[in-house]
């Protein structure tokens, strides 16, 4: 059983601040983390390894600093880590990213066949959820998105049964391996890194591939050139509303406050009053 887990290094967006005057992003000192959704993918792959044996390869495309994300993945128990890094990748949109990742996975497959490629549901920065489907199409893998449970893997028959979150319910799908699985959040809990694994991760000679080593010949398929989408502008959202009308509270009991609010609300917004009164019918 060989799984490749795609992980992306992202800025910890809970720590990004927007400059109040210039409206630009203040990224200084914002720590980089593994995209939180990718930890569920990594844990899913590690669980399969616990059960069926085999290998877990972590794959990341990003700047040289993204090495830290891969070392973290190793400390959780990944066997191999590959960083695909090249200035030529700068500015890649999801089409170019899926092209680069798919090429790298083809290189990985030369050493050992891959049964499942795992990705997170989405990232917290680009947040498109498009890379998983893109990689699957490029490698002609069966695509299983929003997987909430892996029910069964039959390596003999090369089959997998999963539960997939759909609109209004869960689809139980059976398909052939190799497949690409995008993992829904919350389906498992990341294990703790053991001390041994932490030591191993710190010393491990992870693989660093440039464009050629990742098997990419055509530079027009990656980076800005290989990206159909163009960011035309970035701007701050317009304040859409006025500040709230505050209802006085210090004067009296909560019941008075509630009565004042209702009176104001129902006078100014008859449609809300009508909606609420539907309950009375």
């Amino acid at each position: 059983m060989h799984s490749v887990v795609c992980i992306k290094q992202v800025p910890d967006s809970s720590q990004i601040r927007v400059h109040p005057v210039t409206n630009t992003i203040m990224r200084q000192g914002v720590p980089a983390i593994i995209n939180p959704y990718d930890l569920f993918a990594l844990e899913a792959a590690l669980k399969l390894k616990d059960r069926y044996g085999g290998r877990v390869t972590a794959l990341c495309m990003g700047p040289p600093q993204a090495e830290a994300a891969l070392r973290k993945a190793l400390s959780f128990g990944a066997d191999e880590a590959i960083l695909v890094t090249d200035r030529a990748f700068a500015g890649s949109d999801t089409l170019a990213t899926s092209f680069a990742l798919a090429s790298a996975i083809r290189q990985i497959q030369r050493d050992m066949a891959v049964d499942i490629v795992f990705t997170g549901k989405q990232t917290i920065d680009g947040d498109t959820a498009q890379v998983g489907p893109g990689v699957a199409k490029r490698l002609d893998l069966q695509l299983l998105t929003y997987v909430s449970n892996i029910d069964e893997v039959d390596l003999e028959r090369g089959e997998i049964v999963v539960q997939r979150r759909a609109e209004g319910g869960v689809q139980v799908l059976k398909t052939r391996l190799p497949a690409l699985v995008t993992v829904l959040e919350g389906i498992n809990e990341m294990r703790f890194a053991t001390l041994d694994d932490m030591f191993r991760a710190a010393r491990y000679p992870l693989k660093v591939w440039n464009r050629e080593q990742a098997g990419i010949e055509d530079v027009a398929r990656i980076g800005l050139k290989g990206s159909p989408t163009v960011v035309a502008k970035v701007f701050a959202p317009q304040a859409r509303r006025e500040r709230a009308e505050l209802i006085e509270t210090h004067s009296g009991a909560s019941s008075d406050v509630a009565a004042t609010l209702l009176a104001k609300l129902f006078t100014r917004y008859p449609q809300v009053k009508a909606q609420v009164e539907r309950q009375a019918l």
């Binding site: 927007v18 159909p228 163009v230 035309a232 970035v234």
Partner: peptide, 15 residues
């Protein structure tokens, strides 16, 4: 929205 909604960006697919 980008960066968690704190900014917006306009994206075009030109060619």
């Amino acid at each position: 929205p980008t960066f968690g909604g704190s900014l917006l960006c306009t994206i075009q697919t030109l060619n």
